Amino acid sequence: MTEQPLVSCIMPTANRQKYIPYALNNFLEQDYPNAELIIIDDGKESIFQLLPDDPRIYYFYVPPIGTTGLKRNYACERANGEVIMHWDDDDWRAPDWISKQVDYLLSSSADICGIEHVNFFSAVTDTFWKGTALNRNNPNTPGWLNGATICYRKSFWEQHPFKDMQTAEDDDFIKKSGAKTFAHDYIDGFVAILHPHNTTVKYFENPRHKRS
């Protein structure tokens, strides 16, 4: 791959208009110069009016596709980049998140990289937690990564597309593909936002702190 490969951030979404401006700003504030955002929207109403006029953003408003796994495949098919990065519409990433992820992927020679232990924030309770997404098959098994944080080569996905699953499609992708994984330590570069419509169940340790 080139020194700064094109990174395709894939964002499946549907009927979550209130999260879109934050996800877009999060992408636009990244310091990595060679990235694009692939948005797949099969919601009842298009989010087109929320999108800025930016050539790095590709928007596809489509009839209902089905499960999250199928939507991720649809996004990956349309990705122009050598590297694919998950960009769920309801999470926060530091401005150097893409840069760090690419560095970790290339330097580790892993098939998939991401983080295992994740910071969470609940806007309802104004509380931060340190925890891990709940995985049916024990999240603490070696090789497990939080699916919202993963980054991988498009060529790897072409050999191991996502299954037709609404939830845990990323867990299945990581475990069933035989991927070499790398869990890096840039934990503070990502925060999962809790809300009533999360597609993954979560559990936590004690709250770290509430904002004053």
Results as ranks from 00 to 15, higher is better:
K154M: 02
I174F: 01
L105Y: 03
G114S: 07
M165I: 02
V118I: 14
Y152K: 00
H209R: 13
T125R: 10
L134D: 05
E205P: 00
D42Q: 10
V118G: 01
W97M: 10
H209L: 15
D171H: 02
S46M: 09
C151L: 01
K210F: 04
P5M: 09
D53G: 07
Y203N: 15
R136H: 05
W97C: 09
S122L: 11
N80Q: 15
S99C: 03
C76D: 02
R211M: 12
S109H: 11
A192V: 04
I193E: 09
I39Y: 06
P196E: 13
A123R: 07
E158Y: 01
G131Q: 03
K202G: 06
Y22S: 14
Q17H: 15
R78G: 04
H209W: 15
K130R: 08
V62E: 12
K100C: 12
L194M: 14
V102Y: 05
E29K: 13
K18C: 07
P95I: 07
I47Y: 11
Y203W: 15
P21A: 13
P52C: 07
Y74K: 08
H117Y: 11
L106E: 04
D88N: 11
N206Q: 15
R56K: 14
R211K: 14
N206G: 13
N137P: 00
A94K: 12
P12G: 11
L105I: 04
Y59E: 08
I174G: 00
S46A: 14
W144F: 11
L50G: 06
Q17E: 15
E169F: 02
P21E: 13
A110Y: 04
T149Q: 01
M165C: 02
K18D: 15
Q49L: 05
T181R: 04
A183V: 02
I98R: 00
